[in-house]
Each structure stands twice: as C-alpha cells, then as structure tokens.
Design a binder for these strands. Structure first.
Lengths: 99, 99
DNA sequence: AATGTTTTGGACAGAAGTGTCAAATTTAAT
DNA sequence: ATTAAATTTGACACTTCTGTCCAAAACATT
C-alpha cells in the first residue's frame, strides 16, 4: 500500500544518506525548524523545495514531485466524493494544454 | 468539452435558467459580491458551495464536483512538470483507500 | 557527567486568503 | 430619460498560512 506521506518520504531518505536537517535546510535556503516541520507533516512543503530536495537527497525529481502531488491532493481534496473522476478530468485538461 | 473554468461553468448555467446572483447567493448563504467574484474567477469557490450550487442550478453534483476539482488542480499545480504522473499516482492511492 | 550537535516547540511577524459591506457602475424596464 | 434591479469594485476586518528566531529538549560523544 502506497499512500506515502511526503514528509516521511524525504525524512527516510535524508536519514539514509545521513545528512542533518541543518545541511538540507541550508541547501533549500530555509530554517532548520521549517524543514523539521515539513518532515513531520506539521506543515506542507512548498513546491519550491522540490527541485533542491531532489538534488541534495539524490532522488529522481519526477518521483519527488509525484509523491508531493499525491500527498497534497489527498490532503486538499480528501473529503470530496467524486475525486477520482475529477482527477481524470484534470489529467485530460492538462494533457490538452501541454500542446 | 474540457478546460472549463468553474466560474464560467456556473455562470453559464445560472444565466440559462435566469436566476440573479442575488437568489443564488442567498441560497448559498453568501454575499452577492462573493458569488460574483467566484463566477468571474476572481476568487476560488469554497467546497461548501458545491452541493447547494448543484441543487439550485439543477446540475448533477458529480459534474459540479468534477469541474471544480479539475479547475482547482490546474490552478494549484499548473506549474509542475510531472503533474500527469502525480495525478495518476494520487488516483491509485485514493482508489486503494476506498476499499 | 559535561559538552557539542541535532532536532523540536512555540511565540512572533508579515503575507495571503476569505468573505462582507457599501458605493459605483452597468443593464433592463417603464 | 428615469427609475429600478443586477452586477462589479474596492476598502475593510478577520482568519489562516508561511517561515523565522531562539530557547528547550533529545541525542551522541568523550
């Protein structure tokens, strides 16, 4: 079962490669405290963090973004009934926009 | 049939059945001004509006929600590169959660 | 146990979001 | 052309969000 929380995802990886919050936060140009909160899900991650996170944690950017989006959507739209259909529709629109 | 702005969608319908903002707003228990802004996309719709909107505008709730979600997602995540994949992943998670 | 390092907690400030009110504008009807 | 109704605009208050600062707590090392 997936449903990986974004915070858990980056914390796990950060510990894996043994970087302190301090280092990662500095790289993202934010306070240690902020990153700590993001990792524990106390605050949401800003999209601005994604690219630098993927770099310093040596993660695929696409995977980072995917995890971020999935997590945020389930938070933002969790309560809605016809979410699945809404997402499919959104996908369509995005694809058609791309061209 | 895609990329419908939520505001346009409900305004079109409201005019179709010839209800003034005043009536609809009253039914939603919000100010006329607020609804006007929502219709013109100046402000986002609150999820609380969806149900009553579907009722007074005689629209399928599912369609209303779908349009709302699609619009909101393109606003919220418009800039992200791997959005399509993220949405697919989110869908998976939601489906698995449902059971 | 003492020191140093990492992590967390909470108060705070500034920004952004949400809706209201009242006045101004636009549109429709007489 | 007046009047009335509908709609839009902008200022305002209130709340929520976002990140910082710095002190406290937890953890590790010697």
């Amino acid at each position: 079962m997936s449903n990986v929380k974004f915070g858990d995802y980056i914390r796990k990886r950060r510990e894996e490669i043994e970087l302190p919050l301090r280092k990662v936060a500095a790289y993202l140009d934010i306070d240690t405290s902020t990153l700590s909160k993001v990792e524990r899900g106390e605050r949401p991650a800003s999209p601005d963090y994604l690219k630098p996170l993927s770099e310093i944690l040596e993660l695929d950017l696409k995977e980072v973004q995917t995890t971020y989006i999935a997590d945020k959507i389930s938070k933002d739209f969790g309560g809605l009934e016809h979410l699945s259909e809404g997402l499919k529709e959104a996908e369509k629109q995005i694809k058609s926009k791309k061209r």
